[in-house]
Nucleic acid binder design. Sequence first.
RNA 1: UCCCCAGUAGCUCAGUUGGCAGAGCAGAUGACUGUUAAUCAUCGGGUCCGAGGUUCAAGUCCUCGCUGGGGAGCCA
Length: 568
Amino acid sequence: MRRTPWGAARRSRACGATGPARRRWCRRGRAPCAWRPRGTGTSRGRSASRRLRGGRPGTRRPRPTASASAALSTWVRIARSWRTWKPAILPRDGDFAPARSRGLRGILRASFDPGELQMAENVYVADIAQHEGKEVTLHGWLHNRRSSGKLHFLQVRDGTGTIQCVVFKGNVTPESFTEADHLPQETSIAVTGLVKKEPRSPIGFEIDVRDLAVHARPAREFPIGHKEHGVAFLMEQRHLWLRSPRQNLILRVRHTVEKAIRDFFDGRGFTLVDGPIFTPSACEGTSTLFEVPYFDLGKAYLTQSGQLYMEAAAMALGKVYSFGPTFRAEKSKTRRHLTEFWMVEPEVAWLDLDGDMVLMEEFVSFVVQTALAKHREELVRVLERDVSKLESVKPPFPRITYTEAVEVIRKEQEAQRAALPPEEAAKLPPMMVWGDDIGGDEETLVARSYDRPVMVHRYPTLMKAFYFKKDPKQPEVALGCDVLAPEGYGEIIGGGQREDDLETLEKAIAHHELPRDAFEWYLDLRRYGTVPHSGFGMGVERCVAWICGLHHVRETIPFARMTERITP
RNA sequence: UCCCCAGUAGCUCAGUUGGCAGAGCAGAUGACUGUUAAUCAUCGGGUCCGAGGUUCAAGUCCUCGCUGGGGAGCCA
């Protein structure tokens, strides 16, 4: 699979023109550059006009008043020491005599035009509309550059967005103009200029550049160009790939999803409970776990689920959820798997399977609709997502039992066979029978007949982990439920009602041949005031991949951990 | 663990029946006052993944290995 890492889309040309802007530039009275390390950037014989100005990057905000208040506090300090230093600073005669007699105020008036104190404001691209017509300074990286004789077009990104900065030959020094045409991709720069409305710009604004300051040129050519690259190469350059508009958006959608998850549960009175990462043994006794040495206690394992601990927390706090990383050591090599991923796991006391399923559909709908409301335009423009597929994700979700799902799948399989010549049909894998797991292909068969996620419930007891409660009316099935996302994204949620009867749970642990000692604390939850309770787990990466319409979950996490990759 | 595919310039790739190592992008230099993956001209750029084999001759064919990608099982 190939993709344009920068996700750039062609846009139609528009007409219009802007006249040359009035030159207005003042340099005196500025604070010295405080954040450019000595011996970097400008020290190699560059002109003074290129020097960075303004505050340190980490302290740039709050923007509107930063420079003014910094200047003020400087002058407060000067004023405090004024009495001590006055005789030394001010000569008794000449031009300073009248000022000296007026004190500090007089000095300020005599030395500075108040207009000169209004330095170009440091701004972010995301807020650029608020600064129309003003002179601003933007700190960022050069994303791309084009040139047309007496005009250079610099695409500058600052993390919040990308804006085109137009360098006209008549508006800057000759050195700056020449340099603007030779800056490599990803040079860190500060651009000062006038914010102008521009109908041809995708964001509606441009910066008419008056000064350009190079902070640091790349030590070597930036590896990721404005073209298609292979997945392997991009994953090796993941630390740099994050700078692309596409990855930038995906990470912001991930943030929105994670915030929506927190908001959903926080808004319903859930308490966030952090489960342990080190666990003494397998939570479910099934998956392969990562092993780590643990002092004199032998081996510990990285958690594959916080659920058992959430059950304990639910008995204390009623409604709880955990949200953290999870580790699976299976050598799964598919587009849906990572060895390290993030999972949210709510657990609720006094909740049965039906209530759990209502919670699932309301939760998924809230997360999807929140992400859609915030990123709809970008999902379409940058990721070419068909958002109509997300519009319909609202309760109620269709519910079918595992048994019904098997019938649907068998019908589809029969139809497939009927459409093929007999010798071809014989080569197909055997038909699904009750008790088989629903694999990736089968999930797609079930999910494709619905316009929203489908909830498959009451799986065969034998397929499910020991803690699932059996259906009292039908003991061969467990009260579990999976939510299958549409469009082939598969299982994004797994959960259900937990076994709350002590004796049944003891038998289940024995039947699964699990170490009884390790689960004594878990059995205690059934010994002391057991109640019906349910919960589920949702994988953040699968959810983000689905919302963004991505081919693989590896793009949804900043630094993916897979069987064959642990760097960068 | 099993099955399939790929590896050639910094990147993406082409390379015919085994017969001189190629293009686009990126880089350098120059032209252009509205480009938006700008365009145009010129220039530089190679351990053809590694080892071995067949051959007059191997990027190309064979064997083994390495690395990566896709899928299965398992799962979120």
